[in-house]
Design a protein around this nucleic acid. Sequence first.
DNA 1: GATGAAACTTACATAAT
DNA 2: ATTATGTAAGTTTCATC
Lengths: 156, 156
Amino acid sequence: MELDRIDRKIVATLMADATVPLARLADIVGLSQTPCWKRVRRLQESGVIRARVAVVDPERLGLGLTVFAGVSAPEQTPSWHDRFGELLDEIPEVMDAYQLAGNHDYVLRIVVPDMAGFDRIRQRITEAIPVREISANFALRRLKAQTALPIDTKSA
Amino acid sequence: MELDRIDRKIVATLMADATVPLARLADIVGLSQTPCWKRVRRLQESGVIRARVAVVDPERLGLGLTVFAGVSAPEQTPSWHDRFGELLDEIPEVMDAYQLAGNHDYVLRIVVPDMAGFDRIRQRITEAIPVREISANFALRRLKAQTALPIDTKSA
DNA sequence: GATGAAACTTACATAAT
DNA sequence: ATTATGTAAGTTTCATC
C-alpha cells in the first residue's frame, strides 16, 4: 500500500501521541472525521500501525541496567539461526535483536534490574544454545530513547 | 512512588496494548472501574507511564536500514558530552543513544531509508561536533523489536 | 477498597450531498 | 471528499457504602 502525505501525517501524529481524539487528528491532517477515521482504520488493518502501547519509564520499574550484547554464531547454519531466533522470543529481557553485517553476528539490547540479572540472561542463552562468543557493553546512561520513526510529512 | 503488584499488572497490560478499555483492564487486574482508573491516572501523572503511542512498521514507511553507530569523544569534557546530547536530540533519525562503559563512548541506533541516508546523518554529526571516530554496524535483519519492558507481575 | 449512576466525550456507522 | 446525524461504547466525576 502506498502512503500519501496525509497518511504519513496521521502516522506521525499517532506515533507522537496515540491519545489524540479523532476529531483533533482530522483537524491536524486537514480532513473531516469520516475520511480520517477510514484512513486510520486502513492503516491499522494493513499493518502499518502495528499497535498502540504505553511507554513506561524503565527506571521506575527497577530496570536500571541496559546491556548491549554481541553474540556470534559457532556455525553459519540456517538451523542455528532459527533456533537462536526462537530462543530470543522466549526471553522478555531481550528487548531488541538484530543480525549484523559486522564483527558480531547479532546484537541484543537486554534490559534488566542489575548485573546479576544480566548474568542470568547470559547463562540462559549459553545453556540453551552453543555460541562462539558473547560480548557485553554496559550502558552508563541513556541519552535518548525515541519511539517515533523519522518520517517526512512534507514532501508528496 | 512504590508500585505494588496491581500497579505492575496495569502497566504490563498497557505496555502490551494501550487500547484495552478501562472496564476490561479493571477486570484483568481484579479491581472495579473507579479505583483502577485512579491508579492509571496516578501512574500517568507520576511519570511511570510516559505516553501512549502508535507502534509503526518502519519498512512500510520506507525506513529499511538500521545502523548501530559507535561514536567516541575526542576529549572527556562535560561540555563536549552536553553538546553531543543536544545534537542527538535534533536528529530524529537517531532513535536511541546510550553512553557506554566499553570501547566506544556512545552507541546510536539510527534509522534511515538507505545507505545514502545514513551517510547524511554521519556527515551531519561530524560537521556539527568533533569526534574521534565513528564506526558503523549495519543491520541485516531485525529479529525482535519489543516495546514492553520485562516486568514481574507475580511477586509482591 | 466497591457500587451505581450521571454527565460528558469519543468511536463508529450511515445517509445525503 | 464534505456535513449531518444517530447509536453504541468508553471515560471521567461524584455520591454512597
